[in-house]
Amino acid sequence: MTVMEQEIADYVTRVRAALADLRPAVRDELTEDLAEHLAEVAAEGDEPLADRLGTPEAYAAELRAAAGAGGPAAARNLDQRAAAVAASLRARLRVADRNLGPILGYASASEYLRLLRPAWWVLRGYLAAMLITMVTTGASFGLLPRLGGSTLAALLLLAVCVVASVWLGRRTPTLGRWPRIAVRAGTAVLAVFAFAGFVNADDRLGWNESGYQPTSEQVPFVRDVFVYDSEGRLVENARLFDQDGNPIRLGYRECVREGLPESNQGVPAYPYCPEHAPFRSGPVGPRPSPVPPTPAPAPTPTDGPSGGSAPTPSGGTTAGPAPSSAPPPLAPLPTALAPTPVPTSS
């Protein structure tokens, strides 16, 4: 399309937009030779059409008056008003399109976007493959559509979808009305899906980043925690809590222990790997029978949850000696410790 043809098309569009309130048949009749006429006028000289004929809106008003077609104030039904609004909107869009063009280095923005169309077809194929994978396998939005977890299948599916999308893209203009509407609707669904998918994937990326950081930044590289009582014995199944009664999670569960409770209500029990204890040579306490050596703090665990909370407010975290007695009484500890923030905060 030459610049002149573009100018003529724009002029016709704006004249028609200004006549949008007329019955479609009347409007078509009034503007049917307009393009040809403008071509003749344009051939007269290099002057822009608007200089020679006035603005499209003025032209439309003159045409309307001379044809006795009635003014815009004539009774209009809702359809015609909607059509008028839509037409003027389209005309505005065309103007914006042409004004944006030079910024991008093209005659119009749509001309530039048209160049990007094949790229969009490729992206659309990729999104279709991703949607197929997510629907059939329930996978989350990732980078590759791993159908059945296989990379080869992913690449195959990707290739098929991209080729199909490009093929469809090249044929869309030749399709009938309903197939074309179906393609457009499908594309719209993919666009929405893509937006949601990318937002979701981005969120998960952010989560992964923070997930790599250790919970406690002051003590990096903690893999396991070993608690020793006052007599140097390794405390097993120790639970750590902060001032609010929240369990402190450190390290990584590297070894699987059998027979011992892995965690109590989601509270990690330290150490994860007692056999890796750094100070083994000390007076290793008899693990199965630890009750006799520590008689002093015994009342705390034996009192149960109701009595246990009484002594703890003085020092919630200094309950260290108490757990050394035995693993089983520790079970109610989390619940017993939970009330501690209440007295300290009041």
């Binding site: 009749e29 009034l30 030779d33 006035g54 003159e62 006795g68």
Partner: peptide, 15 residues
Amino acid sequence: VGDASVYGTLRRLFA
């Protein structure tokens, strides 16, 4: 004479 006037007049005379 304006272009649009001529076209409009032609349309009206035809109608």
